[in-house]
Design a protein around this nucleic acid. Structure first.
Lengths: 144, 144
DNA sequence: GGCCAACATATGACTTTTCATATGTCACGG
DNA sequence: CCGTGACATATGAAAAGTCATATGTTGGCC
């Protein structure tokens, strides 16, 4: 009675951040168990299937990181033999190495399974939810 | 034609992270303009209206940070005169100082305005979306 | 009362991120 | 061709985050 609900419990941005965090927690734990950091996973997932490679800038934007952060992450991933850089004009084209591609494929399969389990627990809501999220994410999600 | 859509463009966790990032971008820019870091804002928002204070652990969970990160963030915020620590049993009760409370009040007002503008652009969808997000965020959002 | 397990927070060594800016590369006008 | 500005990426110094573990505090048991 007379309880004053916390601002943060109703604030949309907090709910989004919270939902994102909670939904990812399980899969992030799997990644950790494999010794793969979340930013590494994001790069692998983005490069997966991109045979002709992706630029540093595109990677940074897709992975929601800043460009210098991405450059340094790529340094480490290259040192670990997961990706290869190739200069192309003034950009750098980043590709998965064979070991990187193998790891990416495994992890994407795990991610799909995890997503399916998550969606099963929220049956039916998926399409509407994804549409809403795309809408919120805005135009950057539309670019093909 | 025959384009193969990127895995990351349909992956729920990526959509959630992207939506969260995109939705927050505008407000985060406002914070930056004021010289307030996002983690600082989260702590201020969480403490806002909590007259009797909040523990370090609760703050960490609510702000989606780890406990040591929160301890160090609180060091800085205390040094900046935004919060005060007070030992209470084995926990530490964190409260806003008067300047902290003033800043928090201003920022919460800005956040509410920003949220209203955001929701206006997605008219009607708000209640359903929030319900979905709460559902995804899980039990931790239910605790009062 | 004193010891010990359990919990809440703090700290230290190390890694990652950030901000500002340097380097490299192309595109264009002269 | 040779600057020059614009764009793409890299780098250096400083700040923040992370993991493991230390410190402080309580409650129960003998």
């Amino acid at each position: 009675m007379g309880e004053s609900p916390r601002f943060v419990d109703g604030y949309l941005l907090a709910l989004l951040a919270r939902a994102s965090h909670a939904a990812s927690a399980g899969f992030h734990a799997q990644l950790k168990a494999r010794g793969v950091a979340v930013p590494v996973w994001r790069v692998l997932a983005t490069l997966e299937g991109a045979a002709q490679g992706v630029t540093v800038g595109e990677l940074a934007e897709t992975c929601l990181m800043q460009q210098p952060t991405m450059s340094k992450l790529l340094d480490r991933m290259a040192a670990d033999g997961l990706v290869a850089r190739q200069r192309q004009g003034r950009m750098m084209r980043i590709r998965l190495t064979p070991p990187g591609a193998a790891l990416a494929a495994e992890l994407v399969a795990e991610a799909r399974a995890h997503e399916a389990a998550l969606l099963a627990r929220h049956a039916g809501a998926a399409p509407a939810l994804k549409a809403l999220l795309r809408d919120i994410a805005g135009p950057s999600s539309e670019a093909g």
